[in-house]
Computed example of a mutant assay.
Amino acid sequence: MADCDVAIVGAGPAGLLLACVLAQHGTSVRVLERGQGRDDRSRAIGIHPPGLAALRAAGIEDAFRAEALTLSGGTVTSRGLVLAELDFAAGSEVLTLPQARTHALLQGRLAELAPDAVRTGVTVHEVIPEGGAARALVARDDREGEICARVVVVADGVHSGIRDRLRVPWHRKPGRADYTMLDVVDAPPDDRARLHLEPDGVVESFPLPGRGRRWVIRERAPAQRTAASFARTVLARTGFDIGDTGDAEPQLFRAGQHSAGRLVHGAVVLLGDAAHEISPIGGQGMNLAWIAACRLAVALTERSDRDAALSAYERVSLRAAAVAQRRARFNMAMGAPMARVPRSSRDAAIRLLARGASGRRMLGAMTMSGL
């Protein structure tokens, strides 16, 4: 007998949102999370229109909007010259909120819907498909056991051990770069995202609620920076003084791109970063995971032909990931360090693309439309 309808491995944004949507449909869920402490890092901050629709499906849109900052648009500059001014239309806004708060809102919502759904301190060693169900072999407090479910969803991140044990291919995709980010707490009021396409590499900045601002710089090579060296680099590239960094520490990360060879393995399904990795800048990975989670929730509540529904989930999600990865690869290429001649051609192309219908398409790509 199954312990629950759906067991979800990983209590990150993807696993929690899926659990909320399923619980609202009366599906019994259990979320198995290895960690026990709270992660206060801000990490992903951008919520695009499809991501906001996912939060609406989870029943927390209003709570999210009450804390988030709504951006008015984005500005692209190069050597102090404005290349593009893109304004978000009503219904197509991008919002920002530190991931720790988004995570807390999802946890709170799931606690309302299914108070006993989340089990922390649980390590899932292996997931075994068995006919029309699956078994998760788990350990908690040095005790081993298993949990049976109609479906086990694997949402344990980019370095998923379960994906590896299922021998699912993990294909590297084009698009790779190193970045460092730093959050400044007290920044001048501004509700626009700003991209500085500079000769030594892009500098991006995104406003946060409460007069905060996230700065991201592209590195020529991986380097562990201090807050002071980070601020000096921003100033040298853009002429902007980011102000008092307090005790904030820069975080180095690599934007890589991968995709699983398949997402459905019998009654085991991959979701989120365990299924595909894209550049995380702007919250793209989290939003893509939420889009897929809503699609998966529909498949898992399908009563007539679940296998066909899961096959459709796999096909559409892999296609959406491929589109998102192509867009991310283009964005990374546009922000790479460039010599004068290719940089001039790039700047002219951006000015042209920002006009009229092509500008609307550019804005749609920036806000993850069509995924």
Rank of each mutant, 00 (worst) to 15 (best):
R361S: 11
D241R: 07
R295A: 14
R167G: 08
M334V: 14
R192G: 03
W215E: 12
R220C: 10
E146F: 15
H196M: 09
E314V: 12
A260C: 11
A293P: 04
T180Q: 12
P49V: 03
G37D: 14
M286L: 12
A68F: 07
V122Q: 07
G108T: 07
N287E: 08
R79N: 12
A7L: 03
D247K: 09
R56I: 01
A255M: 09
L83D: 03
R232W: 02
V268A: 09
E144V: 13
G132M: 11
A328L: 01
L271R: 05
P49Y: 03
S369D: 13
T77S: 14
A7N: 04
V269Q: 06
H265Y: 01
E112I: 07
L106D: 08
V127K: 04
K173S: 13
T96A: 06
L97D: 01
G256C: 09
N331Y: 09
L270V: 09
A248L: 09
A365S: 13
A134S: 13
V153T: 02
T367I: 15
T96W: 02
G121R: 03
G12D: 01
M1I: 05
L95F: 07
G283K: 02
I45T: 07
R41H: 14
P115D: 15
A104Q: 15
S317Y: 01
R140A: 15
L270Y: 08
G370F: 01
Y313E: 11
L17T: 04
R119S: 15
E314R: 10
L16G: 06
T27R: 06
D40R: 11
S311Y: 06
A2M: 11
W290V: 08
I291H: 08
L32H: 00
E85C: 07
A100V: 14
A44I: 04
R355M: 00
L83R: 00
P188W: 13
L310A: 10
R38N: 10
F253I: 06
A19M: 02
V82L: 13
R101F: 05
A7R: 01
R319L: 11
A289F: 07
R232S: 12
R38D: 14
V154C: 00
T123H: 15
L195W: 14
E61C: 05
R254F: 01
